[in-house]
Amino acid sequence: MSNLITVSPSPHVHTDESVQKIMYRVVVAMIPALVWSVVVFGFDALRVTMIAIAASVGFEYLVQRYIMKVKPSVTDGSALITGMLLAFNVPANLPWWIIIIGAFVSIGIGKLSFGGLGTNIFNPALVGRVFLLISFPVQMTSYPAPAGSGVDAVTAPTPLGLLKEGLMNGQPISEIAGNLPAATDLLMGTTGGSLGEISALMLIIGGIYMLIRKVITWHTPVAVLGSMFVVAAIFWMIDPEAYIGPAYHLLTGGAMLGAIFMATDMVSSPMTGKGQLIYGVGIGAITMSIRLFGAYPEGISFAILIMNAFTPLINNAVKPKRFGGMK
């Protein structure tokens, strides 16, 4: 049978690209940030990441094998990414059982209940993360102190948390500013925060790698960060005492992680460049409104999930430029 000649419709050649290759490139892009978080938080960061990956891949296999009764597709690397992203979004000292719950929600509810890879509406890692944030608010917001920060405390607040707390207490920015970490610290990531979000620099390195390897396009990250910058700048110019400068917003919290790794998730983001710009601006605007006026210090997870829901609408409304003009 194998020596029979093959007949198939054209085309008869195919690119070397595959889903696996794309997925593993994303994994490679996340490694600088992971390495950095191990440096900052020690072995704990690795422990959380490993548990999250193992649980995600494990749940994907079990659910596909025994509940959906389809051939498990764990080798495509998508569950690996979900696990890593989930780990990136939680504190390094999170108990193991919470991570496993998070992985279950991510994979089981966020991804497989919609049909698996390619059919999920929401970014699975974020579904898990937001579920954990709402269910276990204490554990999810007690961030470990980074190594070498000179702080004796076991936990350290995030820069955005510090800012929000100060503003809630009615302090003006000039007073709070003294307590806030310097911009270089934010860039390098020697502050409190989720495992993978701390170092803007490492995330940007990963982002540039993904851009070069054509895993992502520039549209979404630029739109998210650009719109955040614009919104933050407008409020900062209105009242610099009540609102902090735009650069601070871009470097803190999950802005970089969200813009580069979470919002660019292929499955849950729009298909066209134009659509991705709209989607990115939406994420930036919602993030800033949560940060500036909401109860939470950080809101990019919510913003991305909200815009995920709009993705099908954006895909319907924004069509690529057709050859031969519109009818």
Partner: peptide, 16 residues
């Protein structure tokens, strides 16, 4: 494999 909505086909289509 399942479509991962990477939109490469959209960028490759010469007819938009």
């Amino acid at each position: 494999q399942p479509c991962i909505r990477c939109s490469r086909c959209v960028s490759a289509c010469p007819m938009g």
